[in-house]
């Protein structure tokens, strides 16, 4: 594959290789619930509540969690599609709002959405859809850039460029969406359930395409999914969210081996195993997540946690390193000897 002109001008790697590409700290988004005659705010959905993480250059951060845990909201906050209530985003050392504008951030961050059909304008040919961004930014030969990218994602521009989205299959459309995201030569691509709606075989092709593109273009991914197998395949690190909060984060192998947070453990226990000898004996997590309008006090997971004790309901656990791995963090009182949780004391005594 030849290089396109889009990446002959790489965005300046300002912060150097050790500066994380994006640092999100204390991201908060509360949606008002309005009702009644005067449209008054009657409640607040705590969609994302103090989420902090960083994404290193060139890595893929997987974000997992149940539906409604705030994964997609986090993604939309990262790219500024919804406004932050609180918290800050630092992109390669530049703070959003003071050092770089939203517009500049969006040149560096692009997103691929879950619904491949809804994310393409049905009235535009896929060439026009892909060329929209480059045209907007006054790049030379936007159509050429678009054709090049279509070729790169595996769609022959001669045959596909002038088709409309409904003339393509789901996998082909998702390739177009990837091409569109790449048209802005971003450094970070957020993949919000980007392969979840695809057939397994097509999903594998798209995942391989994503891996190839990451290597070729030196991209960094935030990969949001509820499919733990897919996340394991593509991610370097995994972040587990529950009810708008981060409960655990760590290198993919470390988390898939030992889950420090009981929520992560039950999430992984629910993952079907290929090995009959390795079947989980643990009961799956019961019930639905609590309503994010009135999230539980203390540890938000305590209402469904087998190990919950008094301290869990009263005090919110902090995200802290567990065991010897400095990269593996979890927010659970059981790993904090000072918390007063009986299992934590036991662990400390050992």
């Amino acid at each position: 594959m030849s290089k396109t002109e889009t990446d002959t001008t790489p965005a300046a790697d300002r912060g150097g290789p050790h500066q994380p590409l994006i640092i999100a700290s204390g991201l908060k988004k509360h949606f008002p619930v309005r009702s009644g005659l005067l449209n008054r705010q009657t409640a607040t959905v705590h969609a994302v509540d103090g989420v902090s993480f960083e994404v290193k250059k060139g890595e893929t951060l997987g974000i997992v969690g149940e539906s409604g845990c705030g994964k997609s909201t986090t993604a939309r906050l990262l790219i500024g599609l919804i406004e932050l209530d609180d918290g800050s985003i630092i992109f390669d050392g530049d703070k959003l709002g003071s050092d770089i504008s939203l517009k500049e951030l969006r040149r560096g961050v692009q997103m691929v959405f879950q619904d491949s059909y809804a994310s393409l304008n049905p009235r535009l040919t896929i060439l026009d859809s892909v060329a929209f961004g480059p045209k907007l930014h006054g790049l030379k030969d936007p159509a050429g850039i678009a054709r090049n990218l279509l070729g790169r994602v595996g769609l022959d521009p001669d045959r596909f460029a002038h088709r409309y989205p409904h003339e393509l299959s789901g996998g082909q459309r998702q390739r177009v969406n990837i091409a569109r995201a790449l048209a802005m030569s971003p450094r970070l691509v957020i993949l919000d359930e980007a392969v979840s709606a695809l057939d397994k075989s097509v999903e594998a092709q798209v995942l391989n395409l994503l891996n190839d593109l990451r290597e070729e273009l030196g991209l960094t991914y935030v990969f949001i999914s509820h499919d733990l197998n897919v996340v394991r395949y593509i991610s370097d690190r995994v972040l587990v969210m529950y009810l708008g909060e981060v409960v655990e984060v760590g290198p993919v192998e470390s988390i898939y081996e030992t889950q420090a947070h009981p929520y992560t453990a039950s999430l992984f226990a629910a993952m079907p195993s290929m090995d009959p000898d390795n079947r989980t004996e643990e009961p799956p997590l019961a019930g639905d997540p609590p309503n994010p309008i009135n999230p539980p006090s203390g540890c938000r997971f305590h209402t469904r946690c087998r190990f919950a004790e008094g301290v869990c309901a009263s005090r919110k656990p902090k995200l802290a390193t567990i065991g010897g791995d400095a990269d593996h963090l979890a927010a659970c009182h059981m790993h904090d000897a000072a918390s007063g949780h009986s299992l934590a004391l036991k662990e400390a005594a050992e």
Partner: peptide, 26 residues
């Protein structure tokens, strides 16, 4: 409310451009 409007916003499109290119036609 469709994703392609969000995608256009993420590409840095202003309201007028998005309305002209992506909304009007539809």
């Amino acid at each position: 409310s469709l994703d392609y409007i969000d995608a256009a916003r993420a590409s840095g499109g202003g309201a007028l451009t998005i309305v002209r290119v992506h909304v009007l036609g539809n």
